[in-house]
Amino acid sequence: MSTDTSARVAAVLPVLHAHAGEIDEHATFPTAGLDALARQGLLGLLVPAEHGGLGGDLTDLVAVAADLAAGCMSTALVWAMHCQQTDSLVRFATPWLAGHVLPRIAAGEVYLASVTTEPGKGGHLLTGVAPLERTGDLLRLDRDAPVVTGGLHATGFLITMRASDEATANQLSLVYADRDQLDLTRATDWDTLGMRGTESVGLRISGAVPAHQVVGEPGGFRTVAVESMGPVGHLAWAACWLGTARGAFADLVSWLRSDRRSRSIDLSSDLVAERLARIRMDLELVSGYLHRVTGEITALRAAGESLSGTDTQIHLNTLKVTSAELTFRAVDRMVGLAGLTAGYRRDSPLALERRFRDLRSASLNYADDRLLTSTGALTVLDRAVRLA
């Protein structure tokens, strides 16, 4: 991460720390944090410089997401998923669409939401139900989405649709729509155990867009998903989870070294030392694997190679599942070490309880079971067992 980007992140972090508790308490969208990110140009982190953005890469995305998550995981996830959508536009938008949208993202005018969930498909990213309907030069869309992170606040949307009424369930198109091209109706609320500030409500969406607002080839969303949306999502989510757990651990260690530490915790105890070591080991393993897979994806992109390789897909799936499991386990252990008063109480200044609830969502955010099933099937094809 460049010195300039680090300074931009540093300017935003006090806002995230100041509002994290309130966002969680009331399940409110992190408007102040997102506004601060926009002012610092960080909504355009992945936008190329020729479109007015910071021209960052996936290494920057991972570093910034982790730093932001130490302040507020909800805000970090909202921002990271916006960057995930931005990457899809950077790589697959038509020249007209890129010129229309990317400068506005860089200027902080467009916050992107992803619309990929749909009733009746069980969370499968690469299948869809509702079709696009062509009316003259326009593509009409009408669909339900049970979970749309930040959907009520977004000014731009990337929406998966079945390519046409005749298309099969796996022939999807990805469509960009400005907010003023859509009619949005709130269908469900968002009152959850953790990740409360993402305000991932259900929406009823209808509208019409010109055909040149299809991102990638019509019916070709699979390519966008494999080369951009999927891998960037896994990297960004893992970074957010790691940043949340790392921030919690830094707070815990500072507390242990201070006069505020509970008298029942003896730092000379072998048991305490072992518990700290196991927490640190989990975080080190996630950090190491995250940076290894980030390097792999970055190198493949730089070489102009596809990310569809069996071993690469296994590594991405493994990153998601491992980071979800180990970061949650680490914070669970932190709660146990800090104890009932400092670790478990909601009003503890350590805020471990909030991080515990937030990280419980990690294994549910695109279910680990689905990815493990996929990895098992892919493993049979990777006879060379090409490990990361």
Rank of each mutant, 00 (worst) to 15 (best):
V129E: 07
G136F: 08
V335R: 03
T185Y: 03
R333Y: 01
L139Y: 01
L174H: 03
E296G: 06
R370V: 13
V214H: 07
A303Y: 00
R196V: 06
A236Q: 08
F356M: 14
R8V: 09
L242V: 02
V62A: 15
G41N: 02
V385F: 14
R292S: 14
D368W: 00
L364Y: 11
R104I: 01
G216L: 07
V78H: 02
D144E: 15
T116E: 10
L337V: 06
H19R: 13
D67I: 01
L256R: 14
R333K: 12
M73T: 02
S164M: 08
A65M: 06
R263F: 01
L132E: 13
I159D: 00
A225I: 09
S114L: 12
L283Q: 11
M229H: 10
T294M: 11
T155W: 04
D178L: 10
G309Y: 05
A107F: 05
R246Q: 15
E50A: 14
D142Q: 15
L89G: 09
S6T: 14
L172D: 03
L242C: 01
T373W: 03
R140I: 01
L182A: 09
G304N: 08
R39K: 13
H17T: 06
A32Y: 00
T322P: 00
W190C: 02
K320H: 15
M73E: 07
A70P: 03
G295R: 11
L300M: 01
A20G: 02
A10K: 10
R370G: 09
S254G: 11
T373K: 09
H153W: 14
T312G: 03
I205N: 05
M161H: 06
E284N: 12
G123Q: 05
L307N: 12
C83Y: 00
W241Y: 12
V201S: 06
S262M: 02
M195Q: 08
R278F: 06
D4W: 02
T298N: 05
V78K: 00
H212Q: 14
R222W: 13
H82Q: 01
R186F: 02
E25M: 05
T135M: 04
S348R: 00
V385H: 14
E227A: 11
A351N: 09
L77T: 11
E109I: 03
S6P: 00
E25I: 02
A98P: 12
H153R: 15
R134S: 13
L352V: 07
G120I: 06
R261G: 11
P146D: 13
G233H: 12
L97Y: 10
M161D: 01
